[in-house]
Design a protein around this nucleic acid. Structure first.
Lengths: 186, 186
DNA sequence: CCGCTAGACTAATTGTATTAGCTTTCAAGT
DNA sequence: ACTTGAAAGCTAATACAATTAGTCTAGCGG
């Protein structure tokens, strides 16, 4: 009963570590409680439910991803910006697989915060696309294609979907290069 | 106790329906048992565990996907084949989201059947790429890019990750067109 | 110093997977 | 037809996760 000095942020932080280490399915209230040194029901003083933890984790992941992308793109333009952003994207997904996976959940309508964070991340992409002269519908379609390629690659990579992990860096390089070419030559 | 005439295939079939309807998380032994009109423990006469069900579901999904892709590509070549295969891919993922999601799990080393099914599906893609003059490493990198784009698109689409689902068909068309161009112009 | 609330706890409920052991059906062999 | 044995159902029981209810106390505001 010695106050554990817990907080919502601490709970979500522990959840993030577990999700990154064990995967999203291994994220359990019991595991979180054990990690922060408390009994499971005590977590309910800081979060509403396991699903609430997942939502907060998704938000944190999306915010971190948006920040990483922005940092990568700032001060760059054109292919340079696109390549830097793509590598930052992949690095984040590799370094924080649990948070990245959590961030891919549907926004849930009510969840304005998550939608805002996602908007920030997509905003970085749109800024880069503007450097290619893409605006309006063209930019929307292009952004969807770029997101598809990046998300698809890191998802398949994380799932071991590419068979032998040989030459994955080269594959990614080439794909990003092809994306850049596709954006330029439209 | 009137023999329900159950079989492994029937269990997996019910599981496939549930997964497509409710999502992979909604796939529970209790739900399957209820669907086939049996008590939960009776399922163990036909499958080894819930994870075994998931594995068999993944196999079925990958086999179906491979068949669908082959059917779409057969008798076509070049852009025609690529476009047809891409649309078949998306249609399968949309029509059978649970099976598609199940099929994305890691092969698990031992699972030669799933690996073989995945090999068949990828083989269709390689055959199409050969029509673009791509062989060896070039084909591997190209296949990874195409798979990334397709999987990324259908995943984001299924997760509602694209915001408003406006113009998604057009986005997909354009992305596939860009893929075709990218393969040609290398 | 007092009291009250936030935050911890234990106990209990529900739902899931899984195992054990019993029972019944059905078909194959006599 | 009769026996019998395994396959396929069942109930009962265990273990673990999420969640709720209700209790207790630390430690801060007055």
């Amino acid at each position: 009963m010695a106050r554990a000095g817990l907080s919502t942020a601490a709970v979500v932080g522990a959840a993030a570590d577990i999700a990154d280490r064990e995967g999203l399915e291994g994220l359990t209230l019991a595991a979180i409680a054990s990690a922060v040194g408390v009994r499971t029901p005590s977590l309910y003083n800081h979060v509403q439910s396991l699903d609430d933890v997942r939502r907060r984790l998704a938000l944190r992941g999306m915010e971190e991803l948006a920040a990483v992308l922005r940092d990568a793109a700032v001060g760059r333009a054109g292919d340079d910006a696109l390549v830097a952003m793509a590598h930052a994207y992949r690095a984040y997904a590799q370094g924080h697989p649990g948070r990245y996976a959590a961030a891919q959940r549907a926004p849930d309508e009510l969840d304005a915060e998550l939608a805002a964070a996602a908007g920030t991340a997509v905003g970085v992409l749109f800024a880069i696309l503007r450097g290619y002269g893409l605006e309006g519908d063209d930019a929307i379609h292009a952004a969807r294609a770029v997101r598809s390629a990046l998300h698809g690659f890191v998802s398949l990579e994380a799932a071991g979907g590419f068979g032998l992990p040989v030459e994955l860096d080269a594959s990614f390089e080439r794909m990003v290069g092809a994306l850049a070419r596709g954006l330029r030559e439209r």
